[in-house]
Structures are given as structure tokens and as C-alpha cells.
């Protein structure tokens, strides 16, 4: 196996992007990093800069104002990188799908590799999604 690809699978650095979420999904993402679930076991950690990220965790329904920022954020992540849509809002729009300012969902603007439904999804579901995604890379 290609060593850089092996490294990629073993060391995913996450950047957490709130695209108009109600903050509940974001709390569940942080739960994954807490001692109970501890995703650092799999080499995942949160990074502060988009330039260091391998995975963009996008939550929220993407209101119209956020669209340019979402696209710019995606373009700033160095390739190879994947996007994961966290929560019902990010996957389909959820309860906001008929909102006057709704411009999503996420996959209308950037390519999404995995969807995690739920409002909010459980931390186990998020970890499960990442594990399934790693199997397909």
C-alpha cells in the first residue's frame, strides 16, 4: 500500500465548520474528542487551521449568507481531503428545508463523502460514519 495513503487513513485531522448549525451538532462532534470516545485512539484530532485539515466536518443547513464562505473554506483545504456532512440539516436541510434563507444542503455546493443523519447524530454514529468512510478510501 502507498505509505502516504496509509498515513492518511491513520491520521485524519479534522476541521470543524459550522455552516449555520444550531450548535447541537457541534457539541456532539466535540463529544467524540472527550475521554469517553477519544478519537485520538485512531489518530484523529481537531486542528485550528484549514490548511492542516484532512476532513471538513460540516454541520448546519447552509443559509444563503454562508455559501461563499463554505466554498472558500473547501477550496482552502489541501487535497486529498474529504467532507462529511454532520446532522439532518447538513444532509438534507432537515426542519429548515423550507426556510426563506435556505440555500443548502451541503452537497449542493461541495462534494460530500459521507452523510451522518440525526438531529443531532450520536457521537457513535459520527465515529461509525468515519470508519465506514475509511473502508472506502
Amino acid at each position: 500500500m502507498d505509505p502516504t495513503k496509509w498515513g492518511f487513513k491513520k491520521s485524519l485531522w479534522l476541521f470543524h465548520l459550522n455552516a449555520g448549525a444550531c450548535n447541537n451538532c457541534d457539541i456532539e462532534v466535540l463529544d467524540c474528542l472527550c475521554p469517553k470516545h477519544d478519537v485520538e485512539r485512531f489518530g484523529m484530532k481537531l486542528v485550528g487551521s484549514l490548511k492542516h485539515a484532512d476532513v471538513l466536518l460540516v454541520s448546519g443547513s447552509v443559509p444563503r449568507k454562508v455559501v461563499p464562505d463554505l466554498i472558500e473554506a473547501y477550496e482552502q483545504v489541501p487535497q486529498p481531503a474529504v467532507v462529511i456532512a454532520i446532522g439532518a440539516c447538513a444532509c438534507t436541510g432537515g426542519i429548515f428545508k423550507d426556510g426563506y434563507n435556505f440555500a443548502g444542503p451541503v452537497d449542493k455546493h461541495v462534494p460530500v463523502a459521507a452523510y451522518v443523519p440525526g438531529c443531532p447524530p450520536r457521537p457513535e454514529a459520527i465515529i461509525g460514519a468515519v470508519v465506514k468512510l475509511l473502508g472506502t478510501l
Binding site: 498515513g7 491520521s11 485512539r41 484532512d54 489541501p78 487535497q79 486529498p80
Partner: peptide, 28 residues
């Protein structure tokens, strides 16, 4: 650090995996 925070922490090859991965990424 992980043990101090009551976590399990990364496997021993973690820093090597980080470096290998970064080698394969785009430089912006």
C-alpha cells in the same frame, strides 16, 4: 497527555503516520 486526561491516546506509530500523510498532501 492522554493518560493525564483519562484518555487512551494514540498508537505508537501515530507521529510517523502524521508525517507520512503530510508528505502526500498538496502544498498551498
Amino acid at each position: 497527555s492522554a493518560l493525564v486526561q483519562w484518555r487512551v491516546g494514540p498508537p505508537w506509530y501515530q507521529p510517523f503516520a502524521d508525517i507520512l500523510k503530510l508528505m502526500g498532501k498538496e502544498i498551498i
